[in-house]
Design a protein around this nucleic acid. Structure first.
Lengths: 148, 148
DNA sequence: CCATTCTTGTTTGTATGCGAATGACTATCA
DNA sequence: TGATAGTCATTCGCATACAAACAAGAATGG
């Protein structure tokens, strides 16, 4: 909304959904997910990759903690972890000192999967950012981080 | 990957999921969705708003067409439209000239909902972008558009 | 005009993603 | 210590999101 210098009236910028941040964020995310799954294949989703990759950094880790660090709801992280456990990439052990907690860690196979796919994940990032120049990427990532 | 001026070796940038575009896009989108639903309430989701708002611009419109214009899969747009129809915001009529097609249009109530919530949608956009200065917003939106 | 091909809409299956409720356990503080 | 508050994991319900398979209709070329 702006005030016109001529009329002094409030001027409505025409509202176009396709120009709104929300719409664009959703689309950009969709594009990235598509690129990621083209490169990685159907083995791993972006969300699963986040969980595995983050778990490797913070091993061992409780389920909710991992959810917090990957920005996933408790209900969401449970589903993700369940599928990773079923596929033998993540192991769960009950916590000795806290009976509520489930302690997560990568299995041997999980470690291998993370190692094997790191270059592919880098490639996905690269391709997603490919429409931007090197300088634009720096700026974009900086601004994007402010919106999180 | 960069080449060090000192060693001449290829240096691996340490891989951190939380710094990757994909991770940040997902988070930024989550934040926007949360802001939107705080402002609009549980009446409408971001996706439903996109569909309604776009439909108002392009009335009447076939279902798949609307999906294409809102960047939604055929299966996704069907679910969205079904829910909007069930709530009386969208009406469907069979197309005379093409028996496959379902022609969509806003109902009276649908028109009202779009009109009533446009300011709120603007406010959601505004709040999502609030961490950025006016100049940064222009740059960010421009770069984001290139990634779609 | 007929066969091939494309498009439209539907359904199924899998995977996020969140709100809200629940049960079990821990921590805290009066 | 005993009530209260907070945390962890689970579950349910709803809403995207996409791949894949399908049926019916439309469009095209031969």
């Amino acid at each position: 909304m702006q005030i016109s210098a001529e009329t002094g009236h409030i001027e409505e910028t025409p509202y176009q959904v396709e120009r709104q941040v929300g719409f664009l964020l959703r689309q950009a995310n969709q594009r990235h997910v598509a690129i990621f799954s083209n490169i990685i294949g159907d083995k791993l989703t972006t969300t699963q990759w986040s969980a595995l990759s983050k778990l490797q950094q913070n091993q061992p880790c409780s389920q909710n903690q991992l959810g917090r660090e990957t920005a996933m709801d408790v209900a969401t992280i449970k589903g993700v972890v369940d599928r990773l456990v079923k596929r033998g990439l993540v192991a769960t052990v009950p916590d000795m000192s806290d009976a509520r907690r489930v302690v997560l860690s990568l299995t041997q196979q999980g470690e291998e999967v993370v190692t094997e796919n790191r270059q592919a994940a880098r490639a996905a990032t690269e391709e997603t950012l490919s429409p931007l120049t090197s300088g634009e990427r720096m700026i974009f990532l900086e601004l994007l981080q402010k919106l999180c």
